[in-house]
Simulated scan of single mutants.
Amino acid sequence: MDTDVSWKFLVVRGVIGIVFGILAVVWPISTATALMVLWGVWVLADGIGALVQASRPESAGTRLGSVVLGVAALIAAFFAIFSPQVAAETLTWIVGIWLILRGLFEAIVAFSTRLPGPRWLVLLSAVLSILLGVFFVANPGRGAVGIAVLLGIIALTWGVVYVVAGLLTRRELAEAASRR
């Protein structure tokens, strides 16, 4: 790749990240809705693929699993595409349950095994997982919006990093060219 193009590519990626990040933070509900619809389209394709796989003769041993997976994916895709808010809330609820279970498991591990590092860090992680999980389960709508805002902040941050990296790369290339 031409070095002149590489720094420009970094800057463009960064600007796209910044724009997406700002939009996600300013319109988190729309962002969560759009992400659910996109996820629904992907799950639809995955479900169709699983059903096609189930119809092939070489999948005789895994046919039932592929059919179940395909049908489940089609149902999930239907809800994600035609009712994205409900899908986002449901997914947030599932993530909340997972976080609670993860936190409980981490707490058990912290007390029942020998850890190479400080035990309090594992306990802190457990408490944070449980608290975040309880928040998601108790407030799935706000949790989905929170995830969209967090995604926006991450995209915005990475966007700034890419723009800075691109501009620094440009400066280094200019300095190297002037030394020649």
Rank of each mutant, 00 (worst) to 15 (best):
M1I: 02
D2C: 00
T3I: 05
S6A: 07
L10Q: 12
L10I: 06
V15I: 14
G17I: 04
V25E: 07
W27M: 02
P28Y: 04
S30I: 01
T31K: 04
A32F: 04
T33F: 14
L35T: 13
W39P: 07
G40Q: 14
W42F: 13
W42D: 09
D46G: 08
I48L: 08
A50N: 12
A50S: 13
V52G: 06
A54L: 04
S55I: 15
S59Q: 10
S59V: 07
S59L: 06
G61I: 09
T62M: 05
G65D: 01
V67W: 05
G70E: 06
G70S: 03
L74C: 10
A76Q: 10
A77P: 09
F79W: 12
F79P: 02
L91R: 06
T92A: 14
I97E: 13
W98C: 10
L101Y: 13
L104W: 11
F105W: 13
E106G: 15
E106W: 13
V109S: 11
R114K: 04
L115H: 05
L115M: 07
P116M: 01
W120V: 00
V122S: 07
S129N: 08
I130L: 06
L131M: 03
G133T: 07
V137K: 05
V137W: 08
A138M: 14
N139H: 09
P140V: 01
R142W: 15
A144W: 11
V145Y: 00
A148P: 04
V149W: 01
I153C: 04
I153G: 06
G159I: 09
V161S: 06
V164W: 12
L167F: 13
R170Q: 14
R170W: 11
L173Q: 11
A174D: 15
A174P: 15
A176V: 08
